[in-house]
Structure formats: structure tokens, C-alpha cells
């Protein structure tokens, strides 16, 4: 199959970018990234600079891919990362537009590569349980209801890719932040620090320059791991309780 690619090229964070158009010969069994590999091999053969894009595991779990394909972060298929998107979902002769995740909090490094370190800083603000190595009691000493463990797991499956931010018209990071908070706050182990965690992490999220959530739910629709906006509601309510009812204040 023959494809026309409209790819965002940008030298660095400070420079502007623009679209370049390329033609590439692909086959339907290729993954989307393998199709880009073909494009890059083609560019290298012409002694041109290949398109920079980030990728690593290519099995949908590391969360490194960061491109928007025809307007969808990770492409048009529901619950699928870019690396697991296959060309059989595109048509011969189609024009595909490829852009980076766009948000001020995710500055472009080069072409389709963006800086998502804001997410790391949100986790550093409180996305952990304060337990040193060796302090743990026996794993079976805290029974956790199966359903609850499963719900916490649903939140914990977040791969930290940033598609939620890329999809949100406000570039809000609420789905990511709420998934991370929910995972820990739902479990008995995380309950001890729950109030402080939600205060610190929400504050850090705000400080990073993400927009506010306005419940559009584009994040949920585009999330490659189908993380639910229910987590956002949970964090809202925990944030109110932590601010208004508890005596804790944010340490950020």
C-alpha cells in the first residue's frame, strides 16, 4: 500500500515547526512504527535526516510513543498504543497526518519527541507509599478485597504516555494524576498518606502548566489503557475532603 505522510518536523524546542510531506510504500502487516522505520530508512538512503520519534518496547506497555495520528493520540483505534497500531487499519493511498503530543507542559524536543518530565515531578510530589526497603510486613497480613484490588489495578495500568493531556482540549493532566492517586489511595497501604498525597500531587499538577479538567472525557476516549474518568471524580472528592475536612495543607 502507498501512503502519503504529512509529518511535523521541528528542529528543537525554541524553533518553530512545519509539516513535510513524504510518500512511503508500506504493507498491511506492519505496525505503524515499522512503517515509520521504512520512511526513515528511505530518508537515510537519500542522506536526509530521519524523523525523530520516541518508541521503545513496541508492545504497548512502556508508554514512550508520543504522536498524534490523524488527530488521535496513538491513532484511531480504541485502547491501542501507536506501536500496536497496524497498517491494516489504513487504506491504500490515504494521507496520514502525524503530529507530536501538543501541550505547553510537554515542550517539543525534536520532531515528534516531547518532554514529559512534568509527569515525573507529579509522582515525586507524592505518588508513592513511604515505605523503606525492609520495613514491610508479611504480604498476606493485609487482606484486600478482590474487587477493590482489581479497581486499584485498573487505575494502576496507566502507562504514563500522556495521551490524556494530548487529547484534552485543555491539555489537562487530570486523568493521569487521578489514576496515579486513585491507585494508591484506594489501597489500605496507601490510605495512611492519602490526604497529603492528593494535596501535594494536585498542587504539583497545577504548577506544571496543565489546563483544568472540564469533564470533556476526550482523555478517557483516547486513553490506550482505557483509564476511567471515575478516577477524576474520586480525586475531586478526596481533594475537597483533604482541603476542607483534614488539617493537612499542601507541602508543595
Amino acid at each position: 500500500m502507498k501512503l502519503n505522510l504529512k509529518v511535523w518536523r521541528q528542529k528543537g524546542a525554541e524553533t518553530g515547526g512545519k509539516f513535510e510531506t513524504y510518500t512511503v510504500e508500506a504493507n498491511e502487516h506492519m505496525s505503524f512504527l515499522e512503517m515509520l522505520d521504512v520512511l526513515n530508512e528511505q530518508l537515510i538512503a537519500e542522506q536526509k535526516e530521519p524523523v525523530s520519534f520516541e518508541h521503545d518496547c513496541r508492545e504497548g506497555i512502556c508508554g514512550t510513543c508520543s504522536m498524534v495520528i490523524n488527530g488521535h493520540p496513538h491513532g484511531p483505534m480504541k485502547g491501542t498504543t501507536t506501536c500496536q497500531l497496524h497498517m491494516r487499519h489504513f487504506n491504500d493511498g490515504e494521507t496520514i497526518t502525524i503530529e507530536p503530543f501538543r501541550a505547553n507542559a510537554f515542550p517539543v524536543i525534536k520532531d515528534l519527541v516531547v518532554d514529559r518530565s512534568a509527569f515525573d515531578r507529579i509522582i515525586q510530589a507524592g505518588g508513592y507509599i513511604s515505605v523503606n526497603t525492609g520495613q514491610a510486613q508479611d504480604g498476606n497480613s493485609i487482606p484486600i478485597e478482590k474487587e477493590l484490588a482489581s479497581e486499584a489495578f485498573d487505575a494502576a495500568t496507566c502507562i504514563g504516555c500522556g495521551a490524556c493531556v494530548a487529547a484534552c482540549p485543555n491539555a489537562s493532566a487530570m486523568l493521569f494524576t487521578s489514576a496515579k492517586i486513585s491507585h494508591l489511595n484506594m489501597l489500605p497501604q496507601g490510605e495512611v498518606e492519602a490526604a497529603q498525597r492528593v494535596l501535594n500531587m494536585v498542587d504539583q499538577m497545577d504548577a506544571e502548566g496543565f489546563g483544568a479538567c472540564s469533564n470533556v472525557t476526550a482523555c478517557e476516549a483516547e486513553c490506550p489503557k482505557d483509564i476511567s474518568v471515575k478516577n477524576i471524580a474520586r480525586v475531586n472528592r478526596e481533594y475537597f475532603a483533604a482541603t476542607l475536612a483534614s488539617e493537612r495543607v499542601s507541602k508543595k
Binding site: K6, W8, G17, F19, V68, N70, G71, H72, T97, E99, R102, A103, N104, A105, V108, A167, P169, N170, A171, S172, G209, F210, G211, A212, S214, N215, V216, T217, A218, E220, A221, E222, V229
Partner: peptide, 30 residues
């Protein structure tokens, strides 16, 4: 104020815009 602030969170706009959501009305929400 919120709408203006939220717009400012993304200076560089997408070339292709899609409106997929799981909510009641994507048009209304946006």
C-alpha cells in the same frame, strides 16, 4: 477566566482536530 486559561495550556494547535469523547455531547463539552 477558566476557558482563557485552558486555551493557554496549548499554544501550538493541532492541524487535525477530532472530537471523540465518552461523554453525552462532545460538542457541548468542548
Amino acid at each position: 477566566v477558566l476557558a482563557l486559561q485552558n486555551r493557554k495550556a496549548r499554544n501550538s494547535k493541532y492541524a487535525v482536530k477530532v472530537t471523540r469523547t465518552t461523554g453525552t455531547s462532545s460538542f457541548a463539552a468542548r
